[in-house]
């Protein structure tokens, strides 16, 4: 029974990682950059939803939509202001900029909302838990896993069927060739950031529904772990991010339950190092040959 409890908790945490990891993996696949600030977009999304619920008295669904709208705007703005001028620069320069952006967001949040942790209000997401026999599943867990499945299906359909989705795949395959075929690369990259950031807002709300402590650094650790999940599943691959995220969540919860609570994070990161040793391309990643 404890095993099942842990498994379900792991799946829930893993689903949050998976949704965050989607943002990382899509941006990495298309813009070939590690968007360090993604974790902090989650935090901003959670704060906006928090304000909507606590101060402005919005209904939960509207508050989540508002958070998604703000994050989308934020993601596109960050990309346009900070990353677009560096499109031709080395990956080192882009990475340092992304770290700067991550710190900027954290400090802006610190100035607006202060350092004191806020407790995230209860919504329909953390309603009554469901009991099956002795097993009790919290409603937040069910919503998280459901949201994860819906997002996964929607995103797969989007990249496979729509024009924009196809453009994204083209840009990730070969940016130069895509541009020659008349695809607007800048707009495609902006779109990727928009989708990733909107998903980040959802992830932020789900994260704070399960772990209701909100502070400016809330997003950084889940962000880093989600990136680990993306690498684990194979960076650039959407199903990979899903599988990697869920597996990592389960590993983290089991590690905390059966090995040591204090070493939970260390176990997660040790997984990353082992994955890079054994299969650097991740579970579903394909090795890419570099052309000269």
């Amino acid at each position: 029974m404890i095993f099942l409890d842990n498994l379900i908790n792991g799946l829930s945490l893993g689903s949050i990682y998976a949704i965050i990891a989607l943002g990382y993996t899509m941006v990495y696949g298309i813009a070939k950059m590690l968007n360090f600030a993604h974790g902090d977009v989650i935090m901003i999304g959670a704060y906006i939803a928090f304000c909507g619920l606590q101060y402005w008295g919005l209904p939960p669904v509207i508050a989540i939509l508002a958070a998604m709208a703000v994050c989308t705007l934020l993601g596109v703005t960050i990309e346009g202001l900070a990353y677009r001028p560096l499109r031709q620069a080395t990956s080192l320069a882009v990475l340092i900029t992304a770290i700067g952006m991550s710190y900027l967001l954290q400090n802006i949040a610190l100035m607006i909302w202060g350092a004191n942790p806020k407790s995230f209000p209860r919504t329909f997401i953390n309603g009554a838990s469901i009991r099956i026999g002795q097993l009790s599943i919290s409603s937040a867990t069910i919503w998280t896993i459901l949201a994860n499945i819906v997002i996964m299906v929607a995103l797969t359909l989007f990249t496979a069927k729509t024009k924009m989705g196809k453009a994204m795949r083209c840009v990730s395959e070969d940016r130069g060739a895509a541009e020659l075929m008349g695809i607007n690369v800048n707009r495609t990259i902006s779109m990727t950031f928009a989708i990733g950031s909107a998903l980040a807002a959802i992830a932020g709300v789900l994260l704070c529904s399960s772990y209701p402590i909100l502070q400016p650094t809330t997003g950084s650790m889940p962000g880093i772990k989600a990136f680990t999940a993306a690498v684990f599943g194979g960076i650039g691959s959407i199903p990979g991010a899903m599988i990697g995220g869920v597996l990592l969540g389960v590993i983290e919860i089991f590690g905390k339950a059966y090995i040591s609570t204090e070493l939970g994070d260390a176990i997660v990161f040790a997984v990353l190092i082992v994955v890079l040793l054994v299969k650097p391309t991740g579970l579903l990643g394909k090795p890419v040959r570099e052309k000269v």
Partner: peptide, 23 residues
């Protein structure tokens, strides 16, 4: 209080100014 904020801005601006071909 603003040290980390200024550091963040410095990181971004230095990178953009030294790497953007136009600037």
């Amino acid at each position: 209080d603003y040290r980390m904020l200024v550091y963040a801005v410095v990181l971004i601006l230095v990178m953009i100014f030294t790497n953007n071909p136009l600037i």
